[in-house]
Amino acid sequence: MTDDPIDRSGLAPRFWEKKPLAKMTPAEWEALCDGCGKCCLNKLEDEETGEVALTRVACRLLDDATCRCAQYPIRHQFVPECITLDPKTIQDNMYWLPQTCAYRLLAEGRPLYDWHPLISGTAESVHRAGVSVRGMTYSEFEVADEDWEDHIIEEPL
C-alpha cells in the first residue's frame, strides 16, 4: 500500500474482527484510522441536546490534500487540547467521532465499510467513496469562531 502513510504491513488478516479494541497493539490501533480527516474537523455541540455537528472548519494542522495531521507525532505541541484516542479514552469520546469512524464502528459492534483501507487495500478508497474531507475544509484561521455554524456539514458524508 504505497499510497498509505500508515504502515499496515505485518498485521494479522482481519485482526479487527478477532481482537477487541482494548487488546490491540499500537500498530493495529493506528491501522484502524481510515484517513477520512473528519476527526480533525472542529465540532459544535448543542448544550441542550448534546448533539455534535461537524463543520468544514478544520484544525490548523489538518492537511486538506491528504486528510492527515501534518504534525501527528508532535501535534500536542501545537494543539494541546487535541484528544489522544486510545482504548482507554474511546468510550468517553465516541459521541464526537464521525458515524463512519472505524473506532466508533468497532466499539459499537459494527463492521468496517468496504471502502476502509484495511479491506480495500488502498488508502485512496476512502476518498473515492466520498467519505473523506479532502478538498472541502477551511483552516480554523480562516473562519471566525462565531461563523462556524455557517459551515456545518451533514454526517456521514
Rank of each mutant, 00 (worst) to 15 (best):
T66L: 14
E154A: 09
I83D: 03
P5S: 09
R104D: 03
I152T: 00
Y72P: 01
A102F: 02
V57C: 01
A31E: 03
G35F: 03
G109Q: 03
W96L: 07
G121I: 05
P156V: 00
T66H: 14
E51P: 09
Y95F: 11
L112V: 05
S9K: 14
A102W: 05
E142K: 02
D63R: 12
A123P: 03
E140Y: 04
D63S: 12
L118E: 06
N42H: 13
W29E: 02
Y95A: 12
E30W: 11
W29L: 06
A27N: 02
S9I: 09
L118I: 06
P156C: 01
W16M: 03
F141K: 12
V131S: 06
D34C: 10
Y72R: 08
C40A: 05
C101R: 04
S139W: 13
F15I: 07
P87M: 08
M24Y: 01
D147S: 06
W96D: 00
T66Q: 12
E48R: 12
L61D: 08
C33Q: 06
H151I: 02
I83T: 14
G10T: 08
C82F: 02
T100I: 10
E48V: 15
C40T: 01
A70L: 11
E17Q: 06
L85R: 13
P20H: 00
D145H: 13
G135P: 12
R56W: 10
A70C: 11
C33E: 04
C40W: 02
L44E: 01
L54T: 03
E28Y: 09
E108H: 02
T49I: 01
Y95L: 08
H76C: 05
E30G: 06
E51A: 15
W16K: 02
G10D: 12
Q71V: 01
E140G: 10
V52W: 00
R134D: 07
E81C: 12
C101G: 05
R14T: 08
K88P: 08
S125A: 14
D114N: 09
Y103F: 14
Y138K: 04
R134L: 09
E146Q: 07
N93T: 06
E154D: 12
I152V: 09
E81H: 13
D7E: 15
E81Y: 12
T100C: 14
V133A: 15
L32N: 03
P5Q: 08
E124D: 11
E45F: 09
V57D: 00
G50E: 01
R14E: 08
V131K: 03
H76L: 07
T89Y: 00
H76S: 07
L21S: 02
C69D: 09
W96C: 07
E140D: 11
A12Y: 09
Q99I: 00
R8A: 06
I153T: 07
A58G: 13
E17S: 10
W16E: 04
P111R: 10
K18V: 04
I153M: 08
R134E: 09
